[in-house]
């Protein structure tokens, strides 16, 4: 499956899968970035939360670009899920006791 192109035949399943990965996966990764910053940054609580929120939108945009640039839908999803998993792990490991 190659990149979605308007003229390159209809590849709806791959396209729908990418759209879901971009819209929902991107939001989820943004949310995980906001959580990781809030939990991990060694700053005042409000500062860490604000930085997380500000960065989350870049993460979201980055995911969308990645998802549509990836060679196939599997790579697109891997690029969302792996960093997401990583962020979850470090946030969980660094959670305040």
């Amino acid at each position: 499956m190659s990149a979605p192109r308007p003229e390159g035949g209809r590849r709806w399943p791959g396209l729908v899968s990418r759209v879901v990965a971009a819209v929902a996966g991107g939001y989820a990764l943004g949310a995980l970035v906001s959580i990781a910053c809030a939990v991990l940054l060694p700053l005042a609580r409000s500062e860490a939360v604000i930085i997380g929120m500000m960065l989350s939108f870049f993460a979201y945009a980055g995911v969308v670009l990645w998802v549509f640039a990836a060679r196939d839908a599997w790579r697109a999803w891997a690029g969302v899920l792996l960093p997401g998993l990583l962020l979850m792990l470090v946030s969980w490991a660094g959670r305040p006791s």
Partner: peptide, 18 residues
């Protein structure tokens, strides 16, 4: 523009920390 409503769009870090 996204930042003006960020506490609504991305509340998760805040929800957790507070």
């Amino acid at each position: 523009g996204l930042l003006t409503l960020m506490t609504m769009y991305m509340p998760w870090g805040m929800q957790l920390a507070y």
